[in-house]
Nucleic acid binder design. Structure first.
Length: 588
RNA sequence: CGGGGAGUGGCUCAGCCUGGUAGAGCACCUGGUUCGGGACCAGGGGGUCGGAGGUUCAAAUCCUCUCUCCCCGACCA
């Protein structure tokens, strides 16, 4: 029997001053966690109990499609050199040396280790497909840990990896994970949305994120009010109303004097046009270390957007085949355009014909500008703009691409319905990796023709702490939070209102025995505290049901309080187990 | 890494400007009265004022350096 009086559940009346988001405040106040350093937390009794339940659910579901491994957290440098990520991971990787001075790293993720097993052991297509997973501690030296358990430097992740003989096989493994993830998050009681995700710099073909809406979330998800369209903002698109530019016919570009007018708004107002007829010119640089020499080579990248549109840097990076950009500096702008910022434009510059022309600057034009004409843009001359511009006629883009961030209220690309944007917490991510690791690390199997081929991979992650965090974010009020029973540290707290009354205590214990016998997880609040204190604590700590053992025991009755709704019902002591059987185990 | 804020008992904070040797509430311990929504009375324990250096007769307070934490941004398989 779990007696509160004997347990370590250090609840706090006030939240620590450094906690900002609800889940962080309540995890600390409810005695689930304590902070050790920035982004590093200890899980105390209640927190660990809840995480263990989450892990059990994840394991049960994953065991249906895969095999559980347990890989090392400490990795030798050579492994990460092979994939090229020793360098790529930069400061985000915790590094250390062993006593011999050999470089080691703490694992941020386990593609390398899993692939090393695969390449050493897998020989034949007959061994495929394989799905291997583990539940393990990950270390990431985040630039900015934040929001309690939301972004931390040490956390527990379920990471899975699939190896298939071909893309069709990968589709199957991917779908298995998709379905399994849905079951996991359903069982954890999360209200989630699955969104198409940015496939990142790896050029992977497909990726979905499992998101729980929350103001504390770091991601933005775009969903349609009318249909099932759902995408990460980094990936989302929308339908735009057509714009009629025909007013001026096909006039040639002409300079207009725009003294001191630097912003789109100023220029549009000055010329009496809409920002939709302006071109926003954004200047960036890519930095690439030239092969062999390691010397840094810079290349200008210019993006053109419709005046009222926002550039999405994730999309920009995708358009550049994964290359990272940085904003062009002031002196670089003057040198390249021959004009100060505010009057930049694409005319008169010899742009690369495609991305593989390394020497020449790149001009990316957002698709919203494709086919437009009679536009206004910078003249590359201080205090002057050009009118009557037409992309494709007055300058030749390297390529047209979708570079634009969707904004709320725009039209769904599928059905035209209104789009909404919400902040969300990413609790899971599934990803088609392709051949990146098979290739770089040399995993090969023989296919049925005896030909050596690379297995195709997928990787799939779930953050354990994020499930807990997201659950709290979605279910809390001013007094505390309530977890779905499946992941709550206890399902029921039994609260005798006065422990100096033997009858109440004995009845409470009897109720706990009955409930435990029936298989429920119960906490007995046998502390010698006033009822108010116990009720406040019960409301705080995330347990979904409370049984109040008070005056009504003389009538053979107790009160059952549902934390989420505050609904109070009388229940008979004699049949209390049946009562909870109906409430908590309706399937049986 | 850039910008902002904060480090004073377990928690929340006051004191700092204007230097004089540390306080409140909550929590904790003892005794008593209480007992259905964070009780009351009496007594009590607990603090290198983040750290180092400096100024001064005297530093939580002023100066310099430094560490840590939080927030915004950048970054984020």
């Amino acid at each position: 029997m779990h007696r509160w009086s004997e347990l370590f559940i250090p609840t706090l009346r006030e939240a620590p001053a450094d906690a900002e988001v609800a889940s962080h405040k309540f995890l600390v106040r409810a005695g689930y966690i304590r902070q050790l350093a920035a982004g590093i937390y200890s899980y105390l009794f209640l927190g660990q109990r809840s995480l263990n339940k989450i892990i059990s659910i994840v394991r049960e579901e994953m065991d249906k499609i895969g095999q559980e491994f347990y890989l090392p957290a400490m990795h030798p440098r050579e492994l990460w050199e092979e994939s090229g990520r020793w360098k790529v991971m930069g400061d985000n990787m915790f590094r250390l040396k062993d006593r011999k001075g050999t470089d080691m790293a703490l694992g941020m993720t386990h593609e390398e280790v899993m692939t090393s097993i695969a390449r050493n052991e897998l020989r034949s297509y007959k061994q495929l497909p394989q799905i291997w997973y583990q539940i393990q501690t990950k270390f990431r030296d985040e630039a900015r840990p934040r929001s309690g358990l939301l972004r931390v430097r040490q956390f527990t992740m379920k990471d899975a990896y699939s190896f298939d003989i071909d893309a069709a096989g990968l589709d199957v493994s991917y779908l298995k994970h998709y379905d399994t993830y849905c079951r996991i998050f359903d069982r954890c009681g999360l209200k989630y949305v699955v969104v198409e995700a940015h496939s990142g710099s790896m050029g992977g073909s497909q990726s979905h994120e499992f998101m729980v809406r929350s103001s504390a979330g770091e991601d933005q998800v775009v969903t349609c009010e009318n249909c099932s369209y759902a995408a990460n903002l980094e990936k989302a698109t929308s339908r735009l109303a057509a714009i009629d530019d025909s007013a001026n016919g096909d006039a040639a570009p002409a300079e207009v004097h725009t003294p001191g007018m630097k912003t789109i708004e100023e220029v549009a107002r000055f010329l009496g046009t809409s920002p939709k007829s302006n071109i926003k010119t954004l200047a960036y640089m890519t930095e690439e270390s030239a092969a062999g020499s390691g010397k840094l080579s810079l290349r200008p990248v210019v993006a053109l957007m419709r005046g009222d549109h926002q550039l999405n840097e994730a999309k920009l990076s995708t358009a550049l085949a994964g290359k990272e950009v940085r904003p062009m500096q002031e002196d670089e702008i003057k040198k390249f355009f021959g004009s100060p910022a505010g009057y930049l434009g694409a005319t008169g510059i010899d742009w690369a014909k495609d991305l593989n022309e390394p020497a020449r600057p790149v001009l990316l034009v957002d698709k919203a500008l494709e086919g437009r004409h009679n536009l206004i843009g910078g003249a590359n001359r201080e205090n002057y703009h050009l009118k009557n511009l037409a992309p494709g006629r007055d300058f030749q883009p390297t390529l047209y691409a979708d570079l634009r961030s969707v904004t709320a209220g725009e039209d769904c690309p599928n059905c035209g319905g209104p789009l909404r944007i919400d902040s969300a917490v990413e609790v899971g991510h599934i990803f088609k990796l392709g051949y990146k690791y098979s290739e770089s690390m040399g995993a090969r199997v023989l296919d049925r023709n005896g030909k050596e081929v690379m297995p195709i991979m997928g990787c799939y992650g779930i953050g354990m702490e994020r499930i807990l965090t997201a659950a709290i974010e979605q279910s809390n009020d001013e007094n505390g939070f309530w977890l779905p029973p499946q992941i709550a540290p206890f399902e029921i707290v039994v609260t005798p209102t006065n422990v100096s009354d033997d009858k109440l205590v004995n009845t409470a214990q009897e109720i706990v025995r009955q409930l435990e016998t029936a298989g429920f997880e119960v906490l007995l609040d046998d502390r010698d505290e006033r009822p108010g204190v116990k009720f406040k604590d019960a409301d705080l700590v995330g347990i979904p049901y409370r049984v109040t053992v008070g005056k009504k025991v003389t009538e053979g009755t107790v009160e059952v309080v549902q934390r989420s709704t505050r609904e109070i019902r009388d229940a008979s002591i004699a049949t209390i187990a049946e009562y909870f059987q109906r409430v908590l185990r309706p399937a049986n």
